[in-house]
Amino acid sequence: MLEVSRLTKWYGALIGIQDVSFDVEPGEVLGLLGPNGSGKSTTVKILTGLLRPTSGLVRLDGRNIADDLETYKAHLGYVPEEPHLYTHLTGPEYLRLVGRLRQIPDKRLDRKIDEFLQLLGIYDDRYQTLSAYSKGMRQKILIAAAVLHDPRLVILDEPFSGLDVSAARLLKAFVRALAEQGKVVLFSSHVLEVVEQVCSRVVILKEGRIVGHDSVANLRTMLQLPSLDAVFAALTAEEDVAGRLNGLLATMRA
């Protein structure tokens, strides 16, 4: 079980997240939902050990992850928000780099990489460097890299950006299946429909604070609103879309 308790992160004088706590059990997909800048990526980066919290701690099976970050990372698969990759490597070369860093024996690694590339439909591009990959193809490489070592804990930060419909459908099913395999899955997104389809529980973030935390179904009934869209609107500031739109049009013509 992953326990997150009272995480706070200051970026200098700016607050990233404040007092964020939740648990994730094996077998469930926890969604982190919130608009841009609400602190999802900050939370995720702390959970992956890339960022140290200003205060608060993260425990996996009762052990503070900061005590032995290396062992923790060995159990972790992470799909980052921004697809920063070594673009001078080919897809297989990149996956081989990651697999070896994770100490997977070469023979098994090569077999896995081949299969992943075929299943994800990017096998034909295996001699292209990542610089020539489209955004969706890079995202597929990142997802394959995250699960290459069969991790216990999978953390995905807005993983479906840039994917086409069929790839997104496959990967949504894949994320749910990961949970069914008994893995701890954390899924961050600002897209309601995706969270609705993929997650079993949701933590809603706004300006770095948790403003709602329940199962998707409970949240709806709790707020007595027909869909999560309304939940979202109720929890985050309502935007004056019409007003802004007029402003944009006026500026464009000016």
């Binding site: 992956t48 050990g49 890339l50 290396e70 990372k73 060995a74 972790l76 992470y78 980052p80 921004e82 920063h84 990759l85 070594y86 673009t87 780099l97 990651v98 860093l101 994770r102 100490q103 890299a145």
Partner: peptide, 12 residues
Amino acid sequence: RAAWVFRADLSG
């Protein structure tokens, strides 16, 4: 910016 992979995955 791609060096995160070494921080995230380096096990040796």
